[in-house]
């Protein structure tokens, strides 16, 4: 199936999504990758508040290249999600609506997706120039000192992604794996 959806996510819409669906996302999403996740974890460990309320929001695992003058953002494709696996379940339990990245997730992340009715999307890795066109606004909202790894708020229009892990726990990569072509 193909869907056009908006972010922040509506749980009733997420429920319909199935692994393999092609989805265009419009609305507000946030970037965070390795260093921002590590800092968020440390913040939570200290009992402090995070810079963003993740409820129903989407994190895009992405660190852009610098924008040229007059441009919104540089190249802006997904990074490998598995490096965020140690941090993701905790954020999902706090209400994180969805994640966009590329590559496999751990069983713990998959379980947390099911428990929280969340979703994991893949954007096409290495298509950073193409994907940057769907980003209409970008603003650093936290951890500015982390440079490319800062948390950014993005306004996106029709960002193309594919559902990899749906709220029932079906995993598109596993469905394809072992599917040897003779």
């Amino acid at each position: 199936m193909e869907y056009r959806i908006t972010a922040p996510l509506d749980k009733n819409v997420v429920k319909k999504l199935k692994a393999g669906d092609y989805v265009w996302i419009s609305g507000t999403i946030y970037t965070a990758r390795d260093a921002a996740h590590k800092r968020m974890q440390e913040t939570l460990d200290k009992g402090q508040e995070l810079p963003v309320d993740w409820k129903d929001n989407i994190i895009y695992y992405m660190g852009p290249s610098p924008a040229r003058e007059g441009r919104v953002i540089g190249s802006a494709g997904p990074t490998t999600s598995s490096r965020m696996d140690p941090y993701a379940p905790r954020l999902l339990d706090m209400g994180l609506g969805g994640m966009i990245g590329k590559g496999k997730r751990s069983p713990a992340v998959s379980e947390a997706i099911v428990q929280n009715g969340s979703v994991y999307f893949a954007a096409v890795g290495g298509a950073g120039a193409l994907l940057s066109r769907q980003i209409k606004k970008a603003e650093v909202i936290a951890y500015d000192d982390l440079g490319t790894e800062a948390i950014r708020r993005l306004e996106v229009e029709d960002l193309p992604v594919i559902v990899v892990i749906d709220p029932e726990g079906n995993d598109l990569y596993k469905m394809n794996a072992g599917n040897i072509i003779s």
Binding site: Y22, M62, G63, P64, S65, R68, R71, G74, S75, A76, G77, T79, V124, G125, G126, A127, G128, A129, L130, S132, R133, T148, P160, I162
Partner: peptide
Amino acid sequence: LGKKILGQLEENLKIAGEEMIPICQDT
């Protein structure tokens, strides 16, 4: 789906060269 993705990657290369946006953000 594979064909569609490869088409996007070709389009991506075209945009990168024409608009001087790195092919991938991981330079």
